[in-house]
Design a protein around this nucleic acid. Structure first.
Length: 299
DNA sequence: GTCCAGGTCATCG
DNA sequence: CGATGACATGGA
């Protein structure tokens, strides 16, 4: 009955490799918002307050296979839209590869990670909260904190023997329990900032679509930085991961400066003018460059 | 114990 | 404006 599955096959766009994307998703961190198996990833999305589970796996001939429960078949389109956003399937990244090929230090990335797409965080609220959680702590710890937040305030759906979690809603985090989160090793600062972000959504009407209507990168950045706790790094991180805004560069990011240093592009990690000068050379593909540089950190 | 980690804010000159 | 310090907490 309800455990029957529908399978959809998506032809892959040029310069796309699902295995590269899955490999990026599986860097050894304790991720709680999707579950990886061999050649597959499963998660839930929310449509009109209903949780819809699905799995993306590699099919033959490089095709992308999307699976969903038969009784939720009416949500096919929402799942496909989400998949397109999440894995950035609709973008022609020819220009990016041409640019990298011309770059002495970075051309190796086009071979190493061929077909990798900018894996996004389509939910703006989640991206902003994740940026706050990740501020100034190591990633392993950040994932631990995120799991605690999600399992305390999020929602879950059981499918195919898996419990799939969805990130908490702004409404759920507005009324978060400060002492509880303190006991879960959240700092006072992070707790306050998370609530500020939640309030921006519930009280001030912030949303992804509000942001999209704004005319340019700077106005979106300014809008996000009105929130106490969202600085330049967090705003740009969210714009990069949620809107795939090409010119979003998370300045100050330790991973980014580390990677630029590793590739011999900068000598001094605090030399912002040198970093800006480098990114001028990849104009239009800054976010993609950042993403590939991050990828280069984990082998 | 020390140093660092996918920063941000308030407070100075 | 740019510099500086406070904040907070686990992991190597």
């Amino acid at each position: 009955m309800s455990n029957q599955i529908v399978r959809l096959s998506i032809p892959p766009p040029p310069l796309f490799d699902l295995d590269q994307c899955l490999y990026f998703l599986d860097r050894g961190y304790d991720e709680c918002l999707y579950q990886l198996e061999h050649n597959a990833v499963s998660r839930v999305i929310k449509v009109d307050d209903q949780l819809i589970p699905f799995t993306i796996r590699t099919g033959d001939k490089g095709n992308i296979l999307v699976e969903l429960p038969l009784h939720l078949n009416n949500h096919q389109e929402a799942i496909l839209n989400y998949t397109n956003e999440w894995l950035d399937l609709k973008r022609n990244i020819d220009g990016f590869y041409r640019l990298l090929s011309d770059h002495k230090e970075l051309q190796t990335l086009t071979k190493q990670f061929r077909g990798l797409r900018l894996i996004g965080i389509p939910d703006l609220f989640e991206a902003l909260c994740w940026s706050i959680i990740g501020q100034q702590i190591n990633l392993a710890f950040a994932y631990k904190l995120k799991r605690r937040l999600v399992e305390s305030y999020g929602t879950s759906f059981d499918w195919q023997g898996k419990t799939l979690w969805h990130f908490p809603s702004p409404e759920a985090l507005v009324s978060l329990d400060e002492d509880h989160l303190k006991g879960q090793q959240f700092s006072r600062g992070k707790i306050k900032y998370l609530r500020n972000v939640a309030l921006a959504f519930t009280e001030n009407g912030l949303s992804r679509s509000i942001l999209e209507v704004l005319p340019d990168f700077e106005s979106r950045q300014t809008e996000l930085m009105k929130i106490k706790g969202i600085g330049e790094w967090s705003a740009n991180y969210a714009l990069m991961k949620t809107l795939h805004q090409p010119e979003a560069i998370p300045f100050g990011d330790t991973g980014l400066t580390q990677a630029l240093f590793n590739h011999g592009i900068i000598q001094d990690r605090k030399d912002r003018p040198a970093i800006e000068a480098f990114f001028k050379k990849v104009q239009g593909w800054e976010a993609y460059t950042v993403f590939y540089l991050w990828r280069s950190l984990s082998g």
